[in-house]
Amino acid sequence: MQTTLAQLKRGERAIIVDVSSIYVPLKLLEMGCLPGNFVELLQVAPFADPMYLNINGAHLAIRKETALHIIIEKTNG
């Protein structure tokens, strides 16, 4: 099932399907946020924002508003 990264729950993993090149900064792509790579939600701050992620082995925090523009496909486990 495809959804956005903002919907990911703590501890869940997913595969990145599409990244909007208009709303998502190049810097994030350069850190590994690219279609085909895995993403895991490690921790959230209060109100689930920002989100602390493991993207392709890189540990990053991004805001929910950015996560809304990243399409993912949830995987199990």
């Binding site: 810097k27 850190m31 602390y52 540990h59 991004i62 508003e65 950015t66």
Partner: peptide, 10 residues
């Protein structure tokens, strides 16, 4: 435009 990326180093 606001965006925010921060690396969480080891």
């Amino acid at each position: 435009k606001t965006f925010f990326v921060v690396e969480m180093p080891n």
